[in-house]
């Protein structure tokens, strides 16, 4: 820990070769650092320190699939996986996500469960205005990867952090059940 009180201290602490650790703190309130997003390293240049991961993904990195509906962690539109866990990116400090593996809808992969989820959402009408959809796709893919045979109660509980205002959730449930039925 050096004593300038700056995030540079992290470099000393992070000498484990952590490529995405905070690379520097700059001279003021703007910082540059790297994030590991969807399998690639992305440079965040000259960002305010207090920005959320949601804000940095959208405003600095142009990852617009992460949606900003409430920015309070209450709607799930900005859901991503962080180190494999479903989180609301509006509740994550972006600079503190350095070193973590962040997965958005684009990073879920072209095959496997994500592909099945995408196809089922389209085929079963789980999309209307679509604003909640990328967050839902992340949450559903995460759920089915962990609990492929989740029963109805478990599905509803696991997705209760994702608000959809259009569909009434019926077609979303239908899409999920169709994926489970196909697997069986």
């Amino acid at each position: 820990m050096n004593n300038d009180g700056c995030a540079r201290g992290d470099i000393a602490g992070g000498s484990d070769g952590d490529a995405a650790a905070l690379a520097g703190c700059g001279t003021g309130r703007r910082v540059s650092y790297q994030l590991y997003i969807d399998g690639g390293i992305r440079l965040v240049a000259d960002a305010w320190l207090a920005e959320s991961l949601l804000g940095v993904l959208r405003d600095h990195l142009g990852v617009m699939s992460v949606k900003d509906a409430c920015e309070q962690g209450r709607c799930g539109s900005c859901s991503v996986l962080m180190d494999g866990r479903l989180v609301a990116s509006c509740t994550v400090l972006a600079a503190d996500a350095a070193g973590a593996v962040v997965t958005t809808v684009a990073g879920l992969g072209a095959g496997g469960p994500a592909r099945a989820v995408r196809a089922a959402f389209l085929a079963h009408g789980a999309v209307q205005c679509g604003f909640c959809t990328p967050g839902f796709v992340v949450a559903v893919t995460d759920l089915l990867a962990r609990r492929p045979d989740a029963d109805e109660d478990e599905i509803r509980e696991a997705l209760a952090g994702n608000i959809c205002r259009c569909t009434g959730y019926g077609r979303i449930m239908a899409a999920i059940r169709s994926i489970q039925d196909t697997r069986r």
């Binding site: 820990m1 995030a7 992290d10 602490g13 503190d96």
Partner: peptide, 14 residues
């Protein structure tokens, strides 16, 4: 923004 420093310690002591 007033927030100018982010510390990411690795230990409680830090």
């Amino acid at each position: 923004p007033r927030t100018a420093r982010l510390h990411r310690p690795l230990t409680v002591a830090e």
